[in-house]
Design a protein around this nucleic acid. Structure first.
Length: 467
DNA sequence: ACCTGTGTTGAC
DNA sequence: TCAACACAGGTG
């Protein structure tokens, strides 16, 4: 068993972790003490690596005493370690990724590299560690420490929870002015937006929430953008509707040029519309207010019912499962297109259940859409297999350039290709499509309590605006 | 959605 | 004292 007696220079401790951060360490030892330099040459010394945020790594010496030790094997079932005196074990107690989640910041991403080996010849050379540590201290001194109050609402820098909207917002300061970076569903997303902006505005030495390495790709892309353009890009990537992306709430332009549409029948835009009607009237909603007359609002049986549909019309460029946590594997029925200039929703209760039974969230993905196509939804008509009137939308749109080919988002959206190849219909390849700007959307919904699956197809086809 | 004023915090 | 920051109200 190790005695985790670690002592840390009091000055450094506060600089690196901030006040009260010790409590956030996920260590149960009663005496976690970081050793000072003088003891770094001790045979029982272990080392930590500290990410500096600039790709460099510094080390801090730790001292671990051996307690007990009569047994050839020391088992720590809690940590899943089996230690012997004759083998060298390296255990990273604090994975870097986890630490970044623990409000330690990029500079504080410390991982303990616990090495035990009685044979000192196989140990890391302490003098190198000390040297590295000294370099790190100098870098820390040269770098301006954080100023300003710590956020009470978020563990991340630059991220604030906005009570009024119930969202996370991120801001950054530039030239004495606060710049709005966007509103987000999660503080994690907001923190990432802040990080990107911080790197853009202040360079790689900026104090950020996560590892600089996470933003390598972003750094390449942001090189060609001005600050203003970059902020606009961040805002467009924010979870919520953002001006400059689309004039329609819930529609966002993705990096790849595809449009992402995200809505919920009752939890998303519909919920927004309903609330807006109640509080502000019907002039700010997405859909025709007449459609809510005694129908959407007065039919609470749909709310929370198995047939609530989260019409997540998203095309994602990266790891949507990770980001949204709401995109599950669906099998989509084939979509078809009618040359009617209308977007229709069909709903029936046939089909098989394919999604996560533990959730009642529903998703829909749609293929890449012409970026110049600006949809204007208007709820218009309803079709269902039972002849019941549901709802659908008429689509008005305009196309100002040749349409881009639809791109299958299956690979990046967590869908298996066989299940989705029929979902995305390339407008130029489908014989059914006469208008190359038509958009296909299909989705399936599943009840958490029922084995029925509602399969729905949306047809969206823009019509040119009247002259 | 975005801007901006103001209070708070911590380094200098 | 001042810059950096968070919070929150204002505006369109």
């Amino acid at each position: 068993m190790f005695d985790l007696n670690l002592t840390l220079n009091s000055n450094d401790k506060e600089k690196k972790f901030g006040k009260g951060c010790e409590q956030e360490f996920p260590v149960t030892s009663n005496s976690l003490v970081v050793n000072s330099e003088e003891t770094a040459s001790n045979e029982d010394t272990c080392f930590t690596r500290e990410s500096t945020g600039t790709g460099e790594t510094a080390s801090v010496a730790f001292n671990f005493g051996i307690l007990g030790g009569n047994d050839p094997y020391e088992k720590d079932h809690d940590r899943g370690l089996i230690l012997t005196k004759t083998e060298m074990v390296t255990q990273e107690l604090f994975p870097t990724g986890q630490l970044s989640e623990l409000n330690l910041g990029s500079r504080s991403n410390i991982s303990l590299d616990l090495s035990f080996n009685p044979d000192s010849s196989q140990q890391a050379r302490p003098e190198m560690v000390v040297q590295h540590q000294q370099q790190e201290v100098q870098q820390m001194k040269a770098r301006k420490s954080r100023r300003g109050p710590k956020s009470k609402s978020s563990q991340y820098r630059g991220v604030t929870f906005y009570r009024r909207t119930g969202r996370w917002e991120s801001h950054i300061w530039d030239c004495g002015k606060q710049v709005y970076l966007g509103g987000f569903d999660t503080d994690l997303s907001a923190a990432r937006a802040y990080d990107r902006a911080a790197i853009k505005f202040r360079g790689v030495d900026a104090d950020i929430n996560f590892n600089l390495a996470d933003y390598k790709e972003d750094m390449k892309q942001m090189k060609n953008l001005s600050k203003k353009e970059f902020v606009q890009t961040l805002r467009r990537q924010s979870t919520v509707f953002s001006r400059g992306s689309s004039k329609c709430r819930g529609v966002n332009l993705q990096k790849c040029g595809s449009w992402e549409a995200r809505m919920g029948q009752f939890l998303g835009e519909r919920a927004y519309d309903k609330a807006a009607i109640k509080s502000n009237g019907s002039d700010v909603i997405n859909f025709d207010p007449s459609t809510y007359d005694g129908k959407m609002i007065s039919k609470p049986h749909n709310e929370g019912s198995p047939h609530d549909l989260d019409l997540n019309l998203g095309i994602s460029t990266s790891s949507p499962l990770k980001e949204s946590g709401s995109l599950f594997s669906y099998q989509f029925p084939p979509c078809y297109v009618q040359n009617t200039g209308q977007l229709k929703l069909r709903s029936d209760n046939s089909g098989t259940r394919v999604d996560n039974p533990l959730t009642s969230e529903y998703s829909v993905l749609w293929a890449g859409v012409n970026p110049n196509f600006v949809p204007n939804y208007k709820e218009q008509e309803v079709i269902s297999s039972q002849g019941q009137q549901e709802w659908a939308w008429q689509v008005h749109g305009r196309v100002v350039s040749t349409p881009m080919a639809m791109v299958s988002a299956a690979a990046s959206s967590g869908f298996s290709l066989p299940a989705t190849t029929s979902f995305f219909t390339a407008p130029n390849s489908s014989p059914e499509v006469s208008n190359p700007s038509a958009v296909n959307m299909c989705f399936a919904s599943y009840s958490g309590t029922s084995t029925n699956t509602s399969r729905n197809c949306l047809q969206m086809k823009p019509s040119l605006p009247p002259p």
